[in-house]
Amino acid sequence: MNRELLKVSGLTKHYPLPRQGLMEKKQVVRAVDGISFRIREGEIFGLVGESGCGKSTTGQMLVQLVKQTEGELYFQGEPVSGLSESRMKALRRDIQIVFQDPYSSLNPKKTIGWTLEEPLIIHRIGDKLQRRKIVSETLEQVGLDASYMDRYPHELSGGQKQRVGIAAALVLEPKFIVIDEAVSALDVSVQSQILNLLKELQEKRGLTYLFISHDLNVVEYISDRIGVMYLGKIVEIFEAGVADKGPLHPYTRALFSAVPDVHKRKEHAVLQGDVPNPIEPPGGCAFHPRCPAVMDICRSEVPQLRKVGSGHEVSCHIYAEGE
């Protein structure tokens, strides 16, 4: 097993809401509520969940675009908070992010060449000539050629923009990349090209990904392990593609069963109701109002994430007995 690259421990992000009245208590949205997991070197860790579950906030905390309220993030064994400015800048070389929307992730006023060269200038890498060389090599690796350097984002298709977004994350030769819904806005035939590219780059360069997506088919295809989030918490982590180690948590099961299948028409267990308001999440297990297997204990006690097998953790009272 490879060594651990990244460890997240009790990571929490609360967003304060504007006060309703002078006397009112200040309310917070618990976007991410004390999550812990580890990612090994060379691994693709998928993070899934429905909108508002906190998966994107988690991704942004890992690249430190959002500062956590509580908890700690360790990269290569070293805690990230409290790093000096210069150490932080060095860390930013190692951790990169690719965003969903290819339209807003490139500066419309700058050429592709400028965008790709900028990180190298920031980190004072090479001279003008060397930088041009790195940029054109990176472009080639993502399937574009050097002629794209002089083009502007609006001259590119969605898929090409996403390739440039990936190239921009690659120029600094990072170890770890957060991929936030990077294929969700693309058509199927373009999506498969980008997925192949991401997989190929990961294998060639030994990269580690946190792959965030709401598309379960994509996550199941590409990930080694999958973390499932619900209302700011991780409810299950399991190894993908191992048939007898399939998901156990009732939410995970409902989620996967809800995905339409092209091969057969499914009769799925439809989950009733909507995701509750994250300002006032239900007491006990946050999933209990929608859970088909709810028990008394679920309403009062918050379940903890427990190991139920190798590489398999579940946060559910049903699986707590065997301890």
Partner: peptide, 26 residues
């Protein structure tokens, strides 16, 4: 709030660079 600005921050760009190169031209 645009992703290209966030991406630049993630790549280590400082406030001056963000303001001068990423926001003002737009």
């Amino acid at each position: 709030e645009f992703n290209f600005v966030k991406a630049a921050v993630a790549r280590g760009a400082g406030a001056t660079r963000i303001i001068v190169h990423h926001i003002l031209p737009n």
